[in-house]
């Protein structure tokens, strides 16, 4: 692999303007190599989705990038015009959303929505594009693709719709696929099929994946490296195996301890789950120092006043905590 595909550095996103301006995401840095799978994990409201939207230039007011840089293949995405960004989006960087029913156009047959990609980005004729749409639908293992292209989204099941979304996203062989909770709305057995499909297709095409999820199991299954976000900060960024073996940030440790583990009751009897006390702070009231400080059992005076910097943990991993380990 030759270098980073996507480099996000010191990304800062604010919400609102003037007096009601608040910081939503701050100091987010990560990079994804070609063909690599990177996960962003965190709870709702931690800023993982807006980080992804910022990456492909889809942030809308009241959200706005207020600092940092996003480089894709060395090119600064923040300097691109809306038109240049539109050329890139869907073509080199594609996105899959959580709820395929709201992401697909209900008034257009799915085949046409796939074909649109070839027309817009590859200059194909509609006739040619619709033929390619059947192939694209076949590649995501939809049975009878030549019939299914005529279906409207409401005529398909949730799993089938998400396959259509994947077909659209991968139509132009993008370098980067951003998947925002792609299986959260699906049943667990369908989720397993969709994840397997994504993995196979991206592996075969060398597509890098930025996977956003609140589900640590999905991240462990799909990703090589992972960033744990909490209240708009990157708490810890590690190789997946390192994160689960030796979580360094107290939040990560708490999160892993709070999960009921399959098989653990059988082996050790039922133990009380470890709780993380308190609640996630609201965006208007983020603490000045470490944002996890009010809930952290290791917090000391310095945590309340100063934001912890990155501590290198080796193997390309870091943690932002004064009392990690």
């Amino acid at each position: 692999m030759n270098g980073a595909l996507l480099e996000v550095e010191d990304l800062r996103i604010d919400i609102g303007s003037g007096e009601s301006r608040h910081n939503a995401v701050e100091n987010i840095s990560f990079s994804i190599d070609r063909g690599e799978t990177f996960g962003l994990v965190g709870e709702s409201g931690c800023g993982k989705s807006i980080t992804a939207l910022a990456t492909i230039g889809l942030l809308r007011r009241p959200l706005a990038i207020s600092g940092g840089s996003i480089r894709f293949k060395g090119q600064d995405l923040r300097s691109l015009s809306a038109r240049e960004m539109r050329k890139l989006r869907g073509n080199r960087i594609a996105m899959i959303f959580q709820e395929p029913m709201t992401a697909l156009n209900p008034l257009s047959p799915v085949g046409r929505q796939i074909a649109e990609m070839f027309v817009l980005h590859q200059g194909a004729s509609w006739h040619e594009a619709e033929r390619k749409a059947v192939e694209a639908l076949a590649s995501v293992q939809v049975p009878a693709p030549d019939q299914r292209v005529k279906n409207y989204p409401h005529q398909m099941s949730g799993g089938m719709r998400q396959r259509v979304m994947i077909a659209i996203a991968l139509a132009c062989n993008p370098d980067l696929l951003i998947a925002d909770e792609p299986t959260t709305a699906l049943d667990v057995t369908v989720q397993a099929e969709i994840l397997k499909l994504m993995q196979e297709l991206c592996d075969a095409r060398g597509t890098a994946v930025l996977m956003i999820s609140h589900d640590l199991g999905v991240i462990a299954k799909m990703c090589r490296r992972v960033g744990v976000m909490y209240a708009g900060h990157m708490a810890e960024e590690r190789a997946v195996a390192d994160l689960f073996r030796t979580p360094a940030h107290p939040y990560t440790r708490g999160l892993l301890g709070s999960l009921p583990r399959l098989g653990s009751r059988g082996a050790h009897g039922r133990k009380r789950l470890q709780e993380i006390e308190g609640v996630v702070p609201s965006i208007a009231a983020f603490p000045a120092g470490c944002r996890f400080e009010p809930r952290c059992e290791r917090a000391t005076a310095i945590c309340a006043s100063t934001q912890p910097g990155q501590t290198d943990l080796g193997n390309n991993g870091f943690v932002r905590c004064f009392h990690h380990g």
Binding site: L195, L216, G217, V218, K221, R261
Partner: peptide
């Protein structure tokens, strides 16, 4: 159903 659960610890 059981085989479909993505369990982080089992995955690793």
């Amino acid at each position: 159903l059981l085989g479909a659960i993505p369990d982080p610890f089992a995955e690793l």
